[in-house]
């Protein structure tokens, strides 16, 4: 059996697979680009482990010589000193991020499904309006947005952070482009078999655009995780982690080490989310793939 398949496999190699030179060129390109991309991270990580004496050394050293955990200890010491228990900031950010990300993915996907697969009067016009709004500069709407929050009575509450994130147009646009590629015939046949719209959405559409929403999770997470919310939130116990950490690391050059440690700490979670989501994309797509 195995022998029987061998010639075919060899043929495949010759026709589609890359040449050795191509492989080498690709790896060199990736390596060089990777180096460029890694540069700031290496600086940030290395700075975070530098003792004070090395941080201000001249000429600056790229890689830390005598790594120390002093900067991280400083961060935790400053955390312990904070007026509100530090866990509260962490909870605020985790809560708003989770609520915002899951809400956004669901709401944007639902709307995208309707825009992509339902014929409705004014559907295209509405979609055009949403996409156009993407382009409007954020500064100008700051004041009207603030007044809106005030009139809704959402100032100084979690709503001010979560709700605007739910209706971000980019997610809708991304999801719609992916869903449009699903063939109508599968949806049709599901309807024929008596599947409800709700069932079709959850069991047929969403699993098939999994790469899209896993990617969307990364983007939405990124935005909410870094939200300081300083425009809308005044109560100390509602403030977010990035806000608290930027307070800790503020204080000019004397806190440079703390600042470096804080940036490394803040990077860890989005990185974990990214790795989780990417590994899931690869797993699912090698097995499924209804698009034909």
């Amino acid at each position: 059996m195995r022998k029987f398949f061998m010639p075919r496999k060899r043929k495949r190699r010759r026709t589609l697979n890359r040449s050795l030179q191509g492989d080498a060129a690709m790896m060199i390109f990736l390596f060089l680009m990777g180096l460029v991309m890694m540069f700031p991270i290496i600086i940030a990580v290395s700075n975070a482990f530098k003792p004070l004496s090395e941080l201000f050394i001249f000429p600056p050293r790229f890689i830390v010589r005598h790594p120390t955990l002093e900067n991280f200890k400083d961060v935790f010491r400053l955390m312990a000193d904070s007026w509100v228990p530090f866990l509260r900031y962490i909870f605020n950010t985790v809560f708003t991020t989770l609520a915002g990300v899951s809400g956004h993915v669901i709401i944007a996907s639902l709307a995208a499904y309707a825009f992509a697969k339902h014929r409705m009067p004014f559907g295209n016009a509405l979609f055009g309006l949403v996409v156009t709004a993407l382009m409007f500069s954020g500064y100008v709407t700051q004041i009207p947005n603030y007044l809106m929050m005030k009139n809704l009575g959402w100032l100084d509450s979690y709503f001010a952070l979560i709700v605007p994130a739910l209706a971000s147009p980019l997610g809708l646009f991304l999801m719609k482009q992916f869903m449009e590629q699903l063939p109508d015939s599968i949806l049709e046949s599901a309807r024929m078999d008596g599947a409800s719209e709700w069932y079709i959405f959850w069991k047929m559409v969403m699993p098939n655009v999994k790469p899209a929403w896993l990617t969307l999770i990364i983007f939405a997470f990124q935005d909410l995780w870094n939200a300081t919310g300083s425009t809308y939130i005044y109560s100390e116990e509602l403030k977010t982690l990035p806000y608290a950490l930027s307070q800790i690391s503020a204080g000019s050059i004397s806190r440079a080490g703390v600042s470096a440690a804080v940036s490394v700490l803040m990077m860890l979670v989005p990185l974990a989310v990214f790795i989780f989501s990417q590994s899931n994309i690869i797993e699912t797509m090698s097995t499924s793939g209804i698009k034909e």
Binding site: I107, A108, L110, A111, Y113, A114, F115, H118, R119, M120, P121, G123, L126, L129, V130, A133, F136, V140, T141, I143, P144, N145, L147, M148, L152, V163, P164, L166, A167, P169, L172, E197, F201
Partner: peptide, 26 residues
């Protein structure tokens, strides 16, 4: 069409309040 409108309703309502109205206001 009705099902479609129902699906986009949550998004459009949020969009209206946090994007469109502020833009018009500006």
């Amino acid at each position: 069409a009705i099902a479609g409108y129902l699906y986009i309703a949550p998004f459009i309502i949020g969009f209206l309040f946090f994007f469109l109205l502020p833009v018009i206001e500006s």
